[in-house]
Computed example of a mutant assay.
Amino acid sequence: MTAIPPSAKAPGDVVLDFAQVCAGYGETPVLAGIDLAVRRGQVVTLLGGSGSGKTTLLRTATGQLRPLAGTARVFGQDLATASQTQLTAVRQRMGVLFQQGALFTDLDVFENVAFPLREHTRMGEAEIRETVLDKLHAVGLRGAAALRTSEISGGMARRVALARAVALNPELVLYDEPFAGLDPISMGVTAQLIRHLADHLGCASLLITHDVRESFAITDYAYLVGQGELKAQGTPAELEASADPYVHQFLHGEPDGPVAFHYPETPAFEAWLARETRRAPARKEGR
């Protein structure tokens, strides 16, 4: 599979575009200076460690968080100035696969996938049935339509959630840690489904993950965030070949490097240690 760099397609193909975005909560930034673009038909991966701000960027992309600075556009709509009506219109063109699947436990597999169709369309029952079975077939679970969510495995639940996420044929699909908690077979199946759906639907796909191996197998272009900024970007091959110490440490899972194994000993720690050292004899005498 040939990777697709950001410049390989016409600007009109851009679905999600971040330009020098600063994202965070309240007035506190988590990430700053983020440039990111996702185009139709692309699978783009946003990599980063736990707490690096990946999910913060996802919430910014869906309009849950307004950018603190910079410009975040989805389908050409500036999210910083969008009204609630405009945000709703943007979100209806998106599909989101949440980290834990977020299936409705009181609905069976069929009704979970049918839910967005019933909520956002005027389809008749025959058309809903045909659409839901088609989406379940795409993820290999047509025969599981009548099962309760308690009767399916974690990997199957993630695939049902994926079928629901694409039920409305979205133009942009956001995946929040889609491989978390899955066994190796389910991870491989999920990865190939993400690639297949991007190719089949022609949708833009943004994959939020810290899983390098599975994501790189299906990714066209990747971004790596850490320490509050964008650390690197490029095709999987370009990132693998990077000599940057941070990139190398993250991709190869090395315990020490720019992200130190030992938490730094700050002046506050030194002051605490001095106090504890002075208190130790008194504690001993009091026993």
Rank of each mutant, 00 (worst) to 15 (best):
L16Q: 02
V21Y: 08
E276T: 10
Q100D: 14
E265V: 15
M123N: 02
A260I: 00
Q84D: 14
R287E: 15
L47H: 11
R39L: 06
L193E: 11
D256N: 15
L31N: 10
G76V: 02
L168H: 02
E171R: 14
V43G: 08
A280W: 12
Y263M: 11
G140P: 12
D220H: 14
H200Q: 15
A260C: 02
L79H: 10
G12F: 08
G51A: 12
V189D: 14
M1I: 04
D108V: 05
G33P: 01
D35S: 11
S52Y: 04
L103P: 09
Y223C: 06
L193K: 07
G155R: 04
V15E: 11
P178R: 05
G181V: 01
A144R: 15
C203F: 03
V160Y: 08
R287M: 13
T85W: 02
G33E: 06
V74Y: 03
F75I: 08
V44I: 10
D134Y: 01
P258T: 11
T55M: 01
A126K: 13
P116Y: 01
S186F: 05
A274C: 08
G188M: 09
D256T: 09
C203H: 11
H137C: 07
R91I: 00
P255A: 01
T105L: 05
A146F: 05
T81D: 04
G24I: 11
L117P: 00
F18M: 13
D244C: 04
A161Y: 06
T2L: 12
A19I: 00
A126E: 14
L197W: 09
A161S: 14
L57I: 08
R59W: 09
F216S: 00
H210Y: 11
L16D: 01
Q84Y: 00
A157M: 10
M123C: 10
P281T: 09
D199G: 03
P5A: 14
A232Q: 07
A69M: 03
P67A: 06
H200E: 15
K135P: 04
A157I: 08
G51M: 11
H248D: 15
T121K: 04
R39E: 09
E127W: 03
F18H: 02
R93K: 14
R148A: 15
P67S: 08
I128N: 01
S242H: 02
C22P: 00
G70P: 03
G253P: 04
Q233C: 11
V43S: 09
H262D: 15
A268G: 13
A157H: 03
G286F: 11
P184M: 05
L207K: 13
L79M: 07
E151S: 06
Y175V: 05
L174P: 01
T28K: 15
D244N: 12
D244V: 02
A167F: 02
S50Y: 00
D13M: 13
Y175R: 06
G12V: 05
P236D: 08
L251K: 01
